[in-house]
Computed example of a mutant assay.
Amino acid sequence: MNTTLTALTGFIAWTLFLLIVMEVIRSGLVIKKSVAVNAFRPDNANLSPFMQRLARAHANCLESLPIFGGLMLVAALSGNAAVTDPLAYILLAARVVQSLAHLISLSVMAVNVRFIAFAVQVGIAVYWTFLLLAR
């Protein structure tokens, strides 16, 4: 598997990991009878601030996967992985950093880190788009 597809698999695995963490915590809340099984909101608004941030971090991954993952798939399927390979792991790392910053805090510093990590991803996606369209 090339670098692009490995990074894409990592992106998917990270999104799945966040989902599993959320569902393990939710299951624990149900088992402890802290929350009724039918009382969960999609954004975890009725749960702790951490759980709300976890839901947003997971949603951020889902929202961006079609763009970043789509570009990676286009590159891999069109034989242009050489376009995405050099920055694929950087994009994945920026995604993980963005999620971790989201989970850790809502402080100004954490929000700035999150924004920078997201801006890196968007910059890479724009760069890839231009390169792929030019081929």
Rank of each mutant, 00 (worst) to 15 (best):
L91V: 05
S78R: 12
G123P: 02
N38G: 08
L29C: 01
N38V: 08
Y89R: 10
C61E: 04
L29M: 07
F118E: 01
I124P: 00
L132M: 05
A110M: 12
I67G: 00
A110T: 10
Q98C: 04
L100I: 15
F118W: 05
V35K: 08
T9W: 15
A82C: 07
V108E: 15
F68V: 04
R114H: 06
A134F: 11
R56C: 11
T15H: 11
S27Y: 10
A94D: 04
S64Q: 09
M22L: 15
A13Q: 12
G123W: 03
P49K: 13
V83G: 01
T15I: 12
Q98T: 02
G79L: 11
S78T: 15
K33Y: 00
S78D: 14
L71F: 04
A7T: 05
W14A: 14
R41K: 15
N80W: 08
L5G: 09
N2Q: 13
L103P: 07
R41E: 14
A110G: 11
A119H: 02
T6K: 15
T3L: 13
Q52Y: 12
I31F: 01
Q121V: 00
A55H: 09
L47K: 06
A7Q: 04
E23D: 10
N46A: 15
K32I: 00
D43G: 12
Y89K: 10
W128M: 01
F50C: 10
P66D: 02
R26W: 07
T129L: 07
F40D: 06
G10Y: 08
P86Q: 06
I12D: 09
W128V: 02
R114T: 04
A57H: 04
A117L: 01
Y127R: 04
L29I: 03
L54C: 11
